[in-house]
Design a protein around this nucleic acid. Structure first.
Lengths: 219, 219
DNA sequence: ACCTGAACACCGTTCAAGT
DNA sequence: ACCTGAACACCGTTCAAGT
């Protein structure tokens, strides 16, 4: 885990073009996920991953140039999955009022984070310390896009016209609250949902008290 | 860096009781901080730290049982510093209106995070993957306490009576926004201040739109 | 083409020996 | 009491040899 100082090659070494190597890559990724959630980042080493996947280390290094690249691939898989989930829900939510739509999206995000809870948490952590793979960046941008178009639907009732910034802030804030809550142990999804939605609505609410607004403006 | 699976002794091995060993510990900690900010977590190894501190590895291990404990001690130092800063500011802010007080506190937090920017960011990251030292926990609790008492001053205009939760959420949200912003490169402190304060005020605002509230309540 | 695993290098940690 | 640094163990990564 690290903020890379010397940027390193992190791209997968090759796309698995044949069925055999495709299966190998899938086996390696799933073994990596299992070790992460079962034993944590400390016990995550390439020898253990290769052993659990039933291949040799050399074989692992044929597809992933180093340990970071393997972790990055897991992060990318997760990011794409999250994007797909949220995009679908955001799509079905466009016709709902702001609060109801937000609630659906937040619920989906919480469900996603709760499913393979330990894995999701570790991957969130890993992601923060790794240069992003193109796939991850694309999935992140697409997620922002999905949230943006949802918010754009309600632009009239929002106090800002900078939908992109609002979407980015919403995602940051929601992630912080959800990660923060799940880190403290098992959670009540509905209560967490309430808290997150309330925070986002607060952020998006057009009418903070006049005195507060004025005070902010003039400080 | 890791979420510990087998909890490890992380306490400093001994309190530096004499002037000489106190100086050694201080030298080690400062060397560790310099390596972190100059070369990142990747290049952070105990041999390099000992060399830069001008002591032998063995000497380092006399005071810190392992690498994690050394990192944890740095995190604790930072947490105590942040608490002291925020507590002081929160204290002078109690007589101000909500928005103005929040702005002062947020400004202090941003200044703190900007000072040794790389170090602060890395330590935030490290903290997320480490069991907290008692000092860190105490500093965290004290920071929450300081924010809580500030908020309590304005309890009348807040929509919740759960000040503790509100304070925790505010800290989480502020950290997420500040860290998120600083990670994207140098920032305009005033603009960031605006964004964070606006978000917190939104969260704390007593009057979200009626329709939003109702929708949330009935979903 | 893809796989194997012994070998090498690097770094965390220890411990016998020094002052 | 505190320090030293060679030595050991573990794990990331490579590469010559196999199929």
């Amino acid at each position: 885990m690290s903020r890379p100082t010397t940027p390193r090659a992190i791209e997968p070494r090759k796309a698995p073009s044949h069925a055999r190597s495709g299966a190998t890559v899938a086996a390696i990724l799933e073994a990596a996920a299992r070790i992460l959630e079962r034993a944590g980042l400390n016990a995550f080493n390439t020898n253990a991953v290769a052993a659990l996947a039933g291949v040799s280390v050399g074989s692992l290094y044929q597809y992933f140039p180093n340990k970071q690249a393997l972790l990055a691939a897991l992060v990318a898989r997760e990011a794409e999955d999250i994007h797909a989930t949220v995009a679908t829900v955001a799509d079905t939510a466009t016709t709902l009022p702001l609060a109801a739509g937000l609630r659906r999206i937040v619920a989906a995000a919480i469900a996603r984070q709760t499913r393979r809870r330990d894995l999701a948490r570790i991957l969130d952590f890993v992601e923060a310390g790794l240069p992003a793979l193109p796939e991850t960046q694309r999935a992140g941008a697409a997620l922002l896009g999905a949230v943006s178009s949802f918010l754009a639907r309600h632009a009239a009732s929002l106090p800002t016209h900078d939908i992109a910034t609002a979407a980015a802030d919403c995602v940051l804030v929601a992630r912080a609250l959800i990660d923060g809550a799940t880190e403290r142990g098992p959670i009540d999804p509905t209560m967490l949902e309430d808290r997150v939605v309330r925070t986002l609505l607060g952020y998006l609410a057009p009418n903070a008290t006049r005195s507060s607004r004025r005070a902010v403006g003039t400080l």
